[in-house]
Simulated scan of single mutants.
Amino acid sequence: MTRRRRSPDTWRVLRWVLAAQFVFAAILLGTDLAQIVPQLAWPSPAPALTAPIGPGDQIRRYTPDQLPDRAPAPGSRPLPDTRDMPDRLDIATPEWEGEPVLTLTGRIAEGDAARVVAYLDALERLPTETYLNSPGGSVYDALEIGRALRAREIATVMTASDICLSACPYILAAGVTRHADPDAMIGVHQHYFGQNTVLPAFIAVEQIQRGQGEVMEYLQDMGVDPLVMRHALVTPWDEIYLLTPAERATYRLASEPESQG
């Protein structure tokens, strides 16, 4: 049996395909660098995340790996401080004031939604409150976690030392009631809604718009004013817009806990 030799035209086509793949890879890398290099070369001039905020002065630098040290007072809540943030959500149900509560601590990684759902489904006694302490992460997983909490009619709570940034506020929004201490840190900024954007421009824009539309529809379903997204859309990924307690109430994202006195 004789082997068929590829014709010169076939080799020419294969070379063109290989060259096109190299060009595509170069564009892919260039697009990623174009998004990242400006922030590396000219970092945000905004104040540090720990700087006090006031109305109209709420943009702060944001680096998930450089979180502020917000340690709770002993016995004040069932969550660790920000120095103990794991790379994906730590899910637990400790006893708090005689009742089990759900705690979600750490970055929201891809696949965490499935983990949270499986965890809840395995519980014999469903908690009525979720305590949040997260610098954010996967938007998709945050939305799915939020839907799981709402389906089970679980409230969301943040105490004074907690943070809820980036995609985390979408989980906060899911609570049947949503309470946040005035000193809790809640912030939003721009997100990526797809993989690399080295696609035809109309497809990349379509992906972004679809993602933003899904988030806005989700917020409305949760009873939160989608106008809170206007702050996210104009705040770049290396900065965060910290919401004042008044804004949280205005957007129905969270209210202050009721006084126990």
Rank of each mutant, 00 (worst) to 15 (best):
P94V: 12
G223A: 11
M222T: 08
M229R: 05
A254M: 11
Q212G: 11
D84T: 11
A160C: 02
G146P: 05
C164K: 02
E95W: 08
E239A: 10
P86T: 13
R4P: 02
G211R: 09
T105V: 15
S255I: 03
R252G: 03
G223D: 03
D65T: 14
H231C: 00
D112C: 04
P127F: 02
G211E: 09
E239V: 01
L149K: 06
A109C: 03
A174K: 07
V13F: 10
L219I: 04
V13R: 15
G30Y: 11
P200L: 09
R61F: 04
N133I: 00
F202W: 15
P38Y: 13
E256G: 07
F24L: 15
V139E: 08
P74C: 12
D90N: 10
Q260K: 15
M222N: 10
A204F: 03
G136E: 06
R115F: 01
L149Q: 06
R77V: 13
Q58N: 11
D181I: 02
P245V: 10
A41T: 14
R70G: 00
H189F: 04
D183Q: 08
E247T: 05
A167N: 03
W237H: 08
P78R: 06
F202T: 13
T177L: 12
S138E: 03
D69A: 13
A246S: 13
R248T: 00
L199M: 12
P169I: 02
L33Y: 14
Y251N: 05
R77N: 13
R4I: 08
D162C: 00
G187L: 00
V228H: 08
Q58L: 03
V228Q: 00
M185T: 02
I163Y: 01
G54F: 09
